[in-house]
């Protein structure tokens, strides 16, 4: 059984997914950061594939992408680093990346490799749903990969339901009109959007991401969904860290308390 499905079967509330960019802060930190995230008690690890033009990301994640690329990170290199990850990592692992590096690698070869090393799901923000259905759904399913779509406050109810039907794993609820890392507090308007989606009783679990940074925002997000995704705030922590293991543990503990 897919690890994402297993997770949500056991745990319905306060699921914490942590995003970081592969090869950041240093090229060989990918696996150590993943281990630290697991040891600290998070539930899902989201590994970002660095890209030169991440249009849905704010300055913090852009910067981490640039740094990782300057270190020489690439998709091939990443697969090399992750080759034996299942010897040490037991959490669900999701790869997040923009489409271009993946289609250069080849979608079929990419998905095959993901299965081989034990990846559970994919978040590809610039892969539109129709394109996924027309071209890639069969491949994803063949290799047991969950496809995680985004929705935003602007997504119509009809489309949310359509996305729910074509998603498995979980739905990534973008918390506001924004790129990553934009806001630090949660407004009433956002809460009414969370409630609106909650009322739709979707078949998929929902995690709220973008702008979640601490215990307070995590608690609010968790109240209206199955949990949350933290990216930029985590990147900031590891960027400045002199002791990844300790700082990651302290940060994640402070969020889930």
């Amino acid at each position: 059984m897919n690890r994402i499905d297993q997770l949500f079967e056991k745990k319905k509330k306060r699921v914490l997914s942590i995003y970081f960019t592969a090869g950041f802060p240093n090229l060989e930190d990918t696996i150590p950061v993943m281990k630290a995230i697991e040891n600290a008690g998070a539930d899902i690890i989201e590994v970002g594939i660095p890209y030169s033009d991440p249009i849905a990301d704010g300055p913090t994640i852009q910067d981490s992408n640039m740094i990782a690329l300057n270190h020489g990170m690439s998709l091939k290199k990443l697969f090399g680093q992750l080759q034996d990850m299942r010897q040490t990592i037991s959490l669900p692992v999701v790869l997040m990346g923009y489409l271009n590096p993946i289609i250069q690698y080849g979608m079929m070869a990419f998905c095959k490799k993901c299965k081989e090393i034990g990846i559970d799901g994919l978040i590809l923000p610039d892969l539109p749903m129709q394109q996924y259905l027309d071209e890639y759904k069969g491949i994803f399913e063949q290799y047991g990969l969950r496809n995680i779509f985004l929705i935003s406050p602007q997504t119509s109810e009809k489309r949310v339901i359509e996305i729910d039907q074509n998603t498995d794993g979980f739905i990534y609820m973008v918390s506001s009109h924004s790129i990553t890392g934009a806001k630090t507090t949660i407004s009433d308007e956002q809460i009414s959007y969370f409630k609106r989606i909650e009322a739709l009783q979707l078949k998929n679990p929902r995690l709220i991401g973008f702008g979640i940074s601490d215990a307070e925002t995590f608690n609010i997000a968790s109240k209206y969904s199955n949990g949350a995704i933290i990216g930029s705030a985590f990147i900031k922590i590891i960027k400045e860290s002199k002791d990844l293991e300790t700082d990651i543990k302290a940060y994640i503990r402070s969020v889930i308390q």
Binding site: A56, D126, Q131, L150, I151, Q154, T155, S156, I163, H177
Partner: peptide
């Protein structure tokens, strides 16, 4: 061609 955009811009 096509429209490879994040869902946030779909509407």
């Amino acid at each position: 061609g096509g429209a490879y955009i994040p869902e946030m811009l779909y509407p």
